[in-house]
Design a protein around this nucleic acid. Structure first.
Lengths: 213, 213
DNA sequence: CATGATGGGATAGTGGCACTAACCAATGAG
DNA sequence: CTCATTGGTTAGTGCCACTATCCCATCATG
């Protein structure tokens, strides 16, 4: 497959593919000669993943590069690679630890972690960028006047635990290690719009059920 | 409260507040005189909502304006106002109906709606921009090689149904109508990062549980 | 009353980011 | 031979959320 064909198959313009090559989001093709390069299915798959992360997941190019670096790091085992790829994802700034809203948010989240039984890995969790992002999100809700305590967070956490089980089940159906980690990233990133839409549809349904049309 | 005080209380720069006033995201203050204006708690609350929507929810300014217009539309009842505000939120482009991935995605979603019992409002659902966004999201997953069928969507839908119940319970705890609709928007928009983080934490937990550290 | 701060209004500029267009010399296919 | 394609490079575009600056009519204070 040449560049033009890759562009045709992926519906991504040649200029954009060149840009991705430049930015290191796509491995260079196998050089057939000094001015010809051959691309294969793996390039097409990777290109689609990149597009999906950027367009559907709205992930900045620099972050995508970082995630891909983890996916392709052969020196890591599956779990670590998966974790590393997921840890590379968050894009929110860290919370300000002096802010009182942040302090109460962190305290409630810790209580919630204990409540749902994730506390055996609470130390690990606190290291995770996801944890800090969660603190920031809960704090900003508190600042807005919608405080969330451990009791309110816990049921949501349990529901997300169930979705996570589904997610990993789906991941395990994939073949190779790279494909599995790619599937996990896809699940983490691309599934989010799906869940978001399902939740809003469910909200509409529930509102209709409660208050009529 | 004068502009400088509003800026101080909200930690939003005067220039930015002026920008929001210009863009119609914030009602002008009560004019005390030709060159003085007075702002109150409602301005502060609204300003915080706007900031949260833009910074946490990454919602474009034009969309925020549209959502606020619905929130403030006194001529609508609560349910309609809520629906209108939520319908104003989506920002993804409509799917291309000719695309085969889109067609299968739509078919599976319709089967899923029937399966989870939302079909009594399926016609309404299909009108909703959320529905079209869902179709686009599922289609793009399919294009990436991760097809989702009705059987896989349904459990997620049921889980989101449970979160939606929680959401509306929380909303009903709010006092006035505007506050309730604002709370619903906050739930729809600002809760998403919280859910996203919880899901990723849960994925980490589950990965550790399955594969060890 | 003098003076410095504050207000609204307006306009132009900034910085980040994801492309996008254009050009180039080398090369390969028909 | 001739024309299309390649990788590489550079500069430009368009959007968007601010941000900075100016203007000058007030207003608060001494």
């Amino acid at each position: 497959m040449r560049l033009a064909e890759l562009s045709e198959a992926s519906q991504v313009s040649i200029a954009t593919i060149k840009y991705y090559l430049r930015e290191g989001l796509l491995a260079p093709g196998r050089r057939v000669s000094a001015t010809q390069a051959e691309y294969d299915e793996s390039h097409l798959r990777r290109l689609r993943l990149v597009r999906a992360m950027i367009q559907v997941g709205r992930i900045p190019v620099a972050t995508v590069r970082e995630v891909l670096r983890q996916i392709d790091d052969e020196s890591l085992g599956r779990t670590v690679r998966l974790g590393a790829a997921l840890w590379a994802l968050p894009r929110a700034g860290d919370p300000e630890p002096a802010d009182p809203h942040v302090r109460t948010a962190a305290a409630e989240i810790d209580r919630m972690l204990a409540e749902v039984g994730w506390s055996h890995a609470a130390e690990l969790s606190r290291l995770s960028p996801v944890y800090r992002e969660l603190v920031a999100a809960v704090a900003s809700l508190g600042r807005l006047g919608y405080p969330l305590d451990a009791a309110e967070l816990a049921p949501y956490a349990r529901l997300m635990e169930q979705t996570a089980t589904h997610d990993l089940d789906r991941m395990e159906q994939q073949g190779g290690e790279v494909a599995q980690v790619e599937a996990a990233v896809a699940a983490a990133v691309l599934f989010e719009p799906v869940l978001r839409c399902l939740r809003r549809l469910a909200q509409e349904q529930e509102a209709i059920r409660r208050y009529g049309l």
